[in-house]
Write a protein that binds this DNA or RNA. Structure first.
Length: 204
DNA sequence: GCGCCGATTGGCT
DNA sequence: GCCAATCGGCGCC
């Protein structure tokens, strides 16, 4: 029987490094989500690193440990999913050593698989608007609270260890949409990708 | 208990 | 470009 060659998952060790390195190295990898109504996925083209307690913008800074942010203190490779502005889910992967509170926010994908399902979930057929932005990405992929605190290796949402981006294709910019330490150069995106989020002119 | 703010998005001026 | 929608944590009364 034909068996599609299955790429290996990224190992836990991949995530047990500083969040900025993890954020950069996640670019170009494949994120695949198995849902009840189908399988969707795409290439990661935009991420942001949140460094933990020392980073004023991190959910590990200024906030006490609570039910909402508990997952961020888990082991590397754990999903941290929270509700933003009361209506959009945002998906992060915990990075660095446990307890540090560092994580990488997934901000945009190049949609590749399950386009029709993503269009249905998002209510648009404009490909550019399917996965450009953390809230849109989660809606297209069917990611919500049920993923929060789940280790990636045991979750329906997995990042495959396909080849990442060569250094020349990676652009680093200030972070988007936050007020504290926004200017820290911790947003990573694929150079020239039409699939990234953010207003035009914000990508340089 | 109440008001403010936010790692967002989409619709309207 | 402006602004409402909508939930949860936090600070303060």
């Amino acid at each position: 029987m034909q068996r599609a060659r299955r790429a290996a998952l990224l190992p836990v060790a991949f995530f047990a490094r500083p969040a900025d390195q993890v954020a950069r190295d996640l670019l170009g990898r494949l994120l695949v989500v198995e849902g009840a109504d189908g399988r969707v996925g795409g290439r990661i083209v935009e991420t942001e690193a949140y460094l933990g307690g020392e980073d004023p913008a991190s959910h590990a800074a200024g906030l006490r440990r609570n039910e909402r942010n508990a997952a961020i203190y888990g082991p590397p490779g754990t999903w941290y999913v929270y509700l933003s502005y009361g209506m959009h889910w945002c998906a992060n992967l915990v990075a660095g050593p446990p307890g540090q509170g560092a994580a990488v926010l997934l901000r945009a994908l190049q949609p590749l698989e399950g386009l029709e399902l993503m269009e249905r979930r998002r209510g648009t057929r404009i490909a550019r608007l399917l996965c450009a932005g953390p809230g849109r990405l989660c809606q297209a992929l069917g990611i919500d609270r049920t993923l929060d605190g789940v280790p990636m290796r045991r979750s329906p949402a997995r990042v495959l260890g396909v080849e990442g981006l060569p250094p020349g294709r990676v652009r680093v910019t200030p972070r988007i949409g936050i007020t504290k330490a926004a200017d820290w150069p911790l947003r990573f995106l694929e150079e020239g990708s039409p699939w990234v989020s953010g207003p035009r002119g914000r990508n340089d």
